[in-house]
Nucleic acid binder design. Structure first.
Length: 139
RNA sequence: GGAGUUGGCCAGACAGUCGCCGCUGCCCCGGUCGGUGGAUCGGGGCGGGGGAGGAAAGUCCGGGCUCCAUAGGGCAGAGUGCCAGGUAACGCCUGGGCGGCGCGAGCCGACGGAAAGUGCAGCAGAGAGCAGACCGCCUACGUCUCCCGCGGGAGGCCGGUAAGGGUGAAAGGGUGCGGUAAGAGCGCACCGCGCGCCUGGUAACAGUGCGUGGCACGGUAAACCCCACUCGGAGCAAGACCAAAUAGGAACCCCAUGGCGUGGCCCGCGUCGGGUUCGGGUAGGUUGCUCGAGGAUGACGGUGACGUCGUCCCUAGAGGAAUGGCUGUCCUCGACAGAACCCGGCUUAUCGGCCGACUCCCCCU
């Protein structure tokens, strides 16, 4: 369990998972040309979803590169992150940043997210719903 | 050696480390079946091996595949457009013809029809379509006036003339001689052109070939149009299968002194018909999904595109979407750019490097 792998369980998989994060969105963290929405889950580890639209990042090569960077960052720092579902959104102009800059942005965002999660420990009803059931309730 | 044309190939390399997605070997755990050793499904660990492109792009053509439609034919619409071949097919490729560019190797061309019809052509210009007299040239014919040595001369009228100037993208063959008042295919020679024949060629087409016609039938068909040929529609979010929860439906059975839930049971409380089966079907999952008009190589046929046969090889298959992050070393300091059902093309983007043919120029022998 001390590994730094990136198995399927660390990802948001279904449209329902994404919907849940957007609907609740307890935490909101901004970086340079990046934004992350997050909401607590009861799984004991974070999960990541990515939304990099063609409108904001024009070329497929850049989209692939940037998504890899975000995943890599989450993979390496998964044990320092709180138990939340995160959706990272790209803003326009993100492709102009190089790998090092993106890594720095993400590092800072995770720290802020962690701090926020500790400041307002969401012990309310949000945590109780597992996202799988939340997705079914949205019809 | 320099300049250039053309065909093909490569797409930073290596090492360490941490990951991702298929495949595969062994081991472990769990479910089901079977039953000690097996089968199957799911998960995990440790090994092995594979993992973007020449354009993966634009989605501009052509197919395969899938579903829908379809007796046959026509119209409309769209597309293609020198000829022959190649191909599953094409708007692609090969060879040939014609025209243009280049000293050349080569390159470029929507390259059918304007003697079916309709239409269009700014400005300039006298005139632009069965043409036209602005300048110029001529005044022979007919006629009038004048002069004079009846011949002749000057001028006018009626005119003649497309050789020259000028306009234009384009002015109704060219050169020369004859001819004439001046001219003119008016006549002739040569060149060119049209038509018919002949010859060569599968054909497009070509020919110091033969005959014939004085000779435009102007341009535009990426204007309508005519002619010939081709084309049913939609797309992998195609399509197929499995299928929770909730609501609703159908059939059958049971019972309303009841059934169901709660509970070990009774009372109680809550609730109302209950149970079984079936089909449709949402979320979700599986499949379609990579062995194919496939590559490599050899032989044979063909000018070639390509075809036939033999041998060998298996080379991404994701799906919120893998093919990467970090570190180090080196060099020539790395462009354009990321598969999404699969092929054949075209077009566009692109740092550079390598190899093979060929052309021109210069130098040496």
């Amino acid at each position: 369990m001390s590994s730094h792998g990136y198995p399927r369980s660390l990802r948001l998989l279904t449209a329902g998972d994404y919907r849940h994060v957007f609907d609740t969105a307890v935490y909101k963290v901004h970086g340079k040309r990046l934004m992350a929405l997050a909401t607590p889950n009861s799984l004991g580890h974070p999960r990541l979803g990515l939304i990099f639209s063609k409108k904001n990042v024009r070329r497929a090569v850049d989209r692939n590169r940037l998504k890899r960077l975000v995943r890599e960052s989450v993979r390496l720092q998964q044990h320092r992150l709180p138990s939340v579902d995160i959706v990272v959104l790209a803003r326009r102009g993100l492709h102009e940043l190089d790998n090092e800059a993106v890594h720095r942005q993400l590092h800072g965002m995770w720290r802020r997210l962690d701090r926020e999660a500790h400041r307002q420990p969401a012990g309310r009803s949000d945590v109780v719903d597992p996202p799988a059931q939340a997705s079914s309730g949205q019809r």
